[in-house]
Amino acid sequence: MSINRVTLLGRLGADPEIRRLNNGKLVANLRLACEERWKDKSTGNWEKRTEWMPVVIWVEHLVELVEQYVKKGDALYVEGKFQTRKWQDQSGADKYVTEVVLQGFDGKIELCGPGRKGGSRDDGDRDDRRGGGGDDRGSGGRSFGGGSGGGSRGPRSMTDDLDDEIPFAPEFR
């Protein structure tokens, strides 16, 4: 028995790439930056490492919601599974990529962070939600599930202040 389940919390490095394939199916490609920060005990300096995770969404209604609500810099909580693809480049060499895939009923994506009230916004308030203002912690995020009912168990919000001892310490519902 085995489990292929991936849970990520990170920031989108670019706007989602939405494509319609020849067969009419919609697909979204995301690049999620998952950052790890820690304080070096010997120097006292903050260190960080960023892993860029490719995310592919095959569930059409999730693709449509991502296209409507998700933009570069947004904090996302993603649940999916690892999948490795193989292809050949122009010279005939085998190439591989491992991606986090959301398809069927087992994928979930949730918009997290300050400024999210009910998950909707227009591009006009983008600067307002990134700049000053109060802490919107507890205002909730926008959760998009792969299809099964039930509430979200992912993080509800995430603070932009990553300078404390525990980075990415989101609140849970």
Rank of each mutant, 00 (worst) to 15 (best):
D160Q: 11
C112R: 11
L162I: 12
G132R: 14
A14N: 11
E171I: 02
K41P: 14
R37M: 11
D40I: 14
K95W: 11
E51F: 03
H61P: 13
K72M: 14
Q83K: 09
G138F: 08
C112A: 08
D123G: 12
D136R: 00
L32F: 12
W52A: 00
F82G: 00
L162N: 10
S152P: 01
G119S: 12
R156M: 06
R129S: 11
D74T: 12
F144H: 04
S42W: 07
G131R: 14
N45F: 11
R137P: 04
G151D: 06
K72H: 15
R37Q: 14
R173P: 13
E99Y: 03
L76C: 04
G147W: 00
D123T: 14
E67F: 01
D163K: 13
P16N: 03
Q68K: 15
R126G: 06
N4W: 00
G118F: 03
V70D: 05
E67N: 15
G44M: 05
V6P: 00
Q103P: 02
G134Y: 05
Q83N: 07
D89V: 10
D94E: 12
R49F: 06
G124Q: 15
D160L: 08
V101T: 08
W38G: 03
S91W: 09
T43N: 09
G145Q: 05
G149F: 05
D163F: 11
N22H: 05
W58Q: 14
A169V: 00
L30G: 04
E47N: 15
S157T: 11
